[in-house]
Design a protein around this nucleic acid. Sequence first.
DNA 1: AACTGAGTTACGAAATTCGTAATCGGTAAG
DNA 2: CTTACCGATTACGAATTTCGTAACTCAGTT
Lengths: 137, 137
Amino acid sequence: MDELDRRILAILRRDSRTPYTEIADRVGTSEGTVRNRVERLVDEGIIERFTVATRTGNVKAMIEVSVAVDVDTTGVSDRMADWDEVDFVWQVSGEKDVVMVVDAADTRAVNELITQARDLDEVQNTKTRLILDERLG
Amino acid sequence: MDELDRRILAILRRDSRTPYTEIADRVGTSEGTVRNRVERLVDEGIIERFTVATRTGNVKAMIEVSVAVDVDTTGVSDRMADWDEVDFVWQVSGEKDVVMVVDAADTRAVNELITQARDLDEVQNTKTRLILDERLG
DNA sequence: AACTGAGTTACGAAATTCGTAATCGGTAAG
DNA sequence: CTTACCGATTACGAATTTCGTAACTCAGTT
């Protein structure tokens, strides 16, 4: 992870469809070098995934979830990550244990996700915060 | 946004470098149709950005921030979104006003971001929660 | 001075994207 | 019933990008 890697990453974060040839021009190297480095960044897990940032619905929200002390939090997270409108599932430190970031059609759909979470045996309680505005870094 | 759009999006979310030709095969249509639709999804703002999910550092965290009542929260968010290690900045409902999601080299770097936030006049206080594990939806 | 290995560059072949024109389906008007 | 029209889809050749691979460079070692 040197300066060149960081410059390539910065370009990909803004637009991951930028051709290797153009990235090479902008950072002052060759297409092959960009290709090798991106491949390495993927292998090393620094690039986790090529993806799209979407706003499929009208409401994004953070659903914070507490789980019982004796359960497999990772298992719960895995299941939640499979739900349709879920973007991320984080296990976090602090008051709650799991945070789901969701992108839903409307508040009703958000509520259904909350219900779905509360219906899990492992889930003790939830707290939801609507995302009113989002900036991408 | 019909079923075909949703299937295309689902594929792009998993791997946005999947060629149009392959997406077309998998959803049972032609390359041109996939291309037209992706173009439309971008125009409509449903696809906000083609990007990469990264883990450049070893520590991700949510830094929750309260701002004074009389300040331009959007302006603060904009500035934070420009900081290097920041992935997202959300304005949220609930106890705190702004949530920064960051990906930093180590806890020391997280602490520097917290300090940087607290140094802003508009920021009243912060609460940080480490992201111990992340699943992508 | 020769050797080594990682990273870079070079270049032709394969695959993908792109521009555009033809085609298709549904529907409203004559 | 036919015609005209519109957006969406398909078809296809050209331009561009990606890919595989071999040659090259340049530190660091022996």
